[in-house]
Lab assay of single mutants.
Amino acid sequence: TFYNFIMGFQNDNTPFGILAEHVSEDKAFPRLEERHQVIRAYVMSNYTDHQLIETTNRAISLYMANL
Rank of each mutant, 00 (worst) to 15 (best):
Thr14Ile: 03
Asn46Gln: 08
Ala59Phe: 04
His22Val: 14
Ile39Glu: 00
Asn11Glu: 06
Leu62Cys: 09
Pro15Tyr: 08
Asn46Trp: 06
Tyr63Asp: 00
Leu52His: 04
Asn66Gly: 13
Ala20Pro: 01
Val43Tyr: 04
Asn11Leu: 07
Arg58Trp: 10
Asn4Lys: 11
Tyr3Ile: 01
Glu54Pro: 03
Ala65Phe: 10
Asn13Val: 07
Tyr3Met: 02
His36Asn: 07
Asn57Thr: 09
Asn4Val: 09
Lys27Gln: 11
Ala28Ile: 06
Glu21His: 15
Tyr42Trp: 05
Ala59Arg: 00
Thr55Glu: 05
Asn11Cys: 09
Leu19Pro: 01
Asp12Ser: 14
Leu67Cys: 10
Phe5Ala: 01
Thr55Phe: 08
Val23Gly: 03
Met64Ile: 15
Lys27Thr: 11
Ala28Met: 15
Leu67Arg: 06
Glu34Tyr: 15
Val38Ile: 10
Tyr42Asp: 03
Thr1Asp: 05
Thr48Gly: 08
Ile39Gly: 00
Ile39Asn: 01
His36Gln: 08
Tyr42Gln: 00
Glu34Leu: 13
Phe2Met: 02
Gly17Trp: 04
Thr55Ala: 11
Tyr47Ala: 02
Tyr42Gly: 01
Gln37His: 14
Tyr47Asn: 00
Asn13Trp: 06
Phe2Lys: 01
Gln37Phe: 11
Asn57Ser: 09
Val43Met: 12
His36Pro: 15
Phe9Ile: 03
Tyr42Cys: 02
Thr56Trp: 13
Leu32Gln: 12
Pro30Gln: 02
Leu52Gln: 03
Gly17Leu: 04
Gly8Glu: 11
Arg35Ala: 09
Ser45Met: 14
Asn46Thr: 11
Glu33Val: 05
Arg58Gln: 15
Ser61Gly: 10
Ile18Thr: 10
Asp12Thr: 15
Ala59Asn: 04
Gln37Asn: 12
Asn13Ser: 09
Phe2Ser: 02
Lys27Leu: 12
Glu21Ala: 14
Asp12Trp: 07
Ser61Cys: 13
Arg35Glu: 08
Ile60Asn: 00
Ala65Ile: 10
Ser45Asp: 14
Tyr3Gly: 00
Glu33Lys: 02
Arg40Glu: 09
Ala65Thr: 10
Arg31Thr: 07
Pro30Trp: 05
Pro15Asn: 09
Thr56Arg: 02
Tyr3Asp: 00
Glu33Ile: 03
Asn57Val: 11
Asp12Pro: 07
Ala41Trp: 09
